[in-house]
Design a protein around this nucleic acid. Structure first.
Lengths: 151, 151
DNA sequence: TCCAAAATGAGAATAGTTATCGTTGGCCTG
DNA sequence: CAGGCCAACGATAACTATTCTCATTTTGGA
């Protein structure tokens, strides 16, 4: 179980649900999880946490800077622990896999563009959507594609 | 009213609702509109088009390449006419205003990054969120804060 | 003009998320 | 270490954006 001082430092009371959610995210193999996914994983581990609480806590974590929320296509939000180092994402539209990358040149250009138009940049989001290597090689990716055969 | 040949060329029957929606988007001063916003604008113009139809038609337009869908933060989707020239967006988190920009260097880097990881890029989305000039100067932007004023 | 196929409109249904509200529990005080 | 305040919790209702269903209407070709 995660240390309660992490929460305290973030200005949040160290409640049981918060600790459970935080440590579950730290231990999960998949770093990008939906609220629903976190909720279900907790249930499977025998941890009783309400779905509303998961949403509430994730929003608090986001505000506190502990996690980062990504709004993927289709209105799905996923969360990942804030590891301190910013990065962007490549998402496979076939299997849903998420790859991370960081490009200093792009970062610099973005700052410059914002600056040039008198914009105070707070954050940015960059997603590259496409099909990952597995798709190219085998016609399918690691997970399952849409079973319909048609794209 | 927009020309029905635009629709025909896109492989879509030239129905009344489609023509109305297309011409409304062409004439609107705000190029980034939500489905709801388009629906309401049509109502105000005395045009009777069902909300479901607006959603359906916008999705068809997107598939046909006539419009581009943007998934902004908070699960809000907005649409804009596809003017042919790709560009990215800066969104003011205070007033909701949307600015467009295009940076060849960023585009090139993205292609390179995808390529390097064996990714076949289909599309990408880049949004810079921040506060626009009006905010810095006057403490408020053109519109009002709080109400996520997206058409 | 006539007809089959496609599109529409109204409203029901769905998914994801947020709000409500009575109950529980963290943690500060003494 | 107990008492109590107030924030946090859980269950569920409500909400928002979008999609689905299906009876009715429209389109475009013969």
């Amino acid at each position: 179980m995660s240390d309660s001082s992490d929460l305290k430092k973030a200005g949040l009371k160290a409640t049981l649900p918060r600790l459970k959610i935080l440590s579950m995210m730290e231990e999960a193999k998949e770093p990008h999880m939906s609220a629903e996914g976190i909720y279900k994983s907790l249930l499977e581990s025998g941890e009783e946490v309400g779905l509303a609480t998961v949403y509430r806590v994730l929003t608090q974590f986001e505000t506190a800077g502990l996690v980062i929320r990504h709004n993927f296509e289709g209105g799905r939000a996923v969360f990942e622990l804030n590891q301190g180092h910013h990065h962007d994402h490549m998402v496979c539209v076939e299997c849903g896999k998420v790859f991370e990358f960081f490009d200093p040149a792009i970062e610099a250009r973005q700052r410059k563009i914002a600056e040039k138009s008198g914009f105070v940049m707070e954050e940015h989001s960059l997603y590259i959507y496409g099909t990952c290597e597995g798709m190219k090689k085998n016609g399918v990716c690691s997970k399952k594609a849409k079973t319909t055969g048609m794209a």
